[in-house]
Design a protein around this nucleic acid. Structure first.
Lengths: 226, 226
DNA sequence: CTCTGTGAAGGGATTCACAGCG
DNA sequence: CGCTGTGAATCCCTTCACAGAG
């Protein structure tokens, strides 16, 4: 298969840059979108770049550069129209936001993710869950049907799902990824602390909880040269 | 207090760079450490930079640069000694790895985090959990005692805890952060989809699940210009 | 005036390329 | 030979600074 390791050696992580838009920009656009939505719900209609910067932890210049990427224009007096900017971000994201995803591994983390996305946003949805525990398969978790892992390929293709979330123990992560790849998935969100070996055309993002905590511990402990 | 928003405007995110060591490097060192440990458990004793790169998704040059930061040296024939490199990373991290942390919010995500860190690593530990639900306080979850949030300041100071994990609903995130700051915490790992307004000297890292999924959806959908 | 839009400058991080060593 | 260590080059991202518009 596509085992890297020794063989590939000096390979670059050609992490799908696609339209020359960096991951960082996409991340911030997603963040902006949520903030804009909140502002809209709060009854506002406009926002300035420096305000959006304040709410997102960036700078005004960066906000303007990001917005430039999606080709939206604000007005020089009123700043940006909340509704207009949201619509523009949505157009930029295209159909991607409305795609459903699936998850494998219904442990504590899997359940947490299911409830997270069931509660928030009606748009981002997990439409199928998988596990190999017979106790779980067939049940409904946070409104999401749980199937046996064996059914993943069929369901993924039937529902035309292109993103899979991995929330299984580390030992099972690579085989789960392999299964997803065979099932035609093209993006993986991996919560297992294992680097996944996948073909070039698969986009993989890893959320490493241990690493995150270790980082905070480091910077908290070594703060201000203390 | 330290409300930013409109007031501060053009403020930079002076995210504690401390000893000139970037967050990225710390993240990778944490990742390397885990890989090295696995290799050691697998009975190996040495590793080459290109192997470590393969297992971590980076390049050999980058691995060598990272290792340079911590001042470790390998040998030109055998590569790096697993035990030696692990020891060197540990020395670099100093006492930070052995610090305990606390968590607020024992919902699905909180439980998932508690079990994640209870299972893996005996070193990274969450030593106290907090919630405002009387049903939960007083109980033991994944071996961790759950207290009422009001007790946080006392316990944080008693046990000298410097890192807090936020796993509460978004509405409660800022007040939880404020409470942690008052309790003397210096690092926060935030899972709530809210940008936290905190004093300069606090290190904050945010894990935004919605953003992560949205990013994968975007790159999966718009892959290879498709 | 204050705000956006934008080319250009600046800073970091990654990669290159090669000296040196076993 | 193949590997590490390392300065230099490159690339990418962020920030600056100012023109232009209201």
């Amino acid at each position: 298969m596509y085992r890297k390791e020794k063989a590939v050696m000096e390979e670059k992580k050609t992490q799908k840059k696609q339209k020359n838009v960096s991951q960082k920009v996409i991340e911030r656009l997603s963040l902006y979108r949520r903030i804009l939505q909140e502002q809209l719900s709060a009854g506002n209609s406009n926002i300035f770049s420096h305000q959006l910067a304040g709410y997102s932890g960036g700078t005004a210049a960066q906000v303007r550069q990001d917005i430039r990427v999606i080709g939206y224009s604000g007005s020089t007096n009123g700043g940006y129209s909340l509704a207009g900017l949201i619509r523009s971000i949505d157009e930029f994201f295209g159909a991607s936001r409305s795609q459903a995803s699936l998850i494998v591994g219904i442990g504590n983390l899997g359940k947490a993710l299911l409830s997270h996305f069931a509660l928030r946003s009606l748009e981002l949805t997990i439409s199928a869950a998988f596990d190999n525990d017979p106790e779980k398969t067939g049940t409904l978790i946070e409104g999401c049907r749980c199937f046996d892992v064996e059914q993943l390929p069929n369901i993924a293709r039937e529902q035309n799902i292109s993103v899979g979330i991995i929330a299984v123990p580390p030992e099972a992560a690579q085989e789960t990824a392999d299964l997803m790849v065979r099932a035609g998935i093209s993006g993986i969100l991996n919560f297992a602390p294992v680097y996944l070996d996948t073909p070039e055309h698969i986009f993989v993002d890893m959320v490493d909880l241990t690493m995150s905590l270790e980082k905070v511990l480091y910077f908290a402990y070594n703060r201000d040269g203390g």
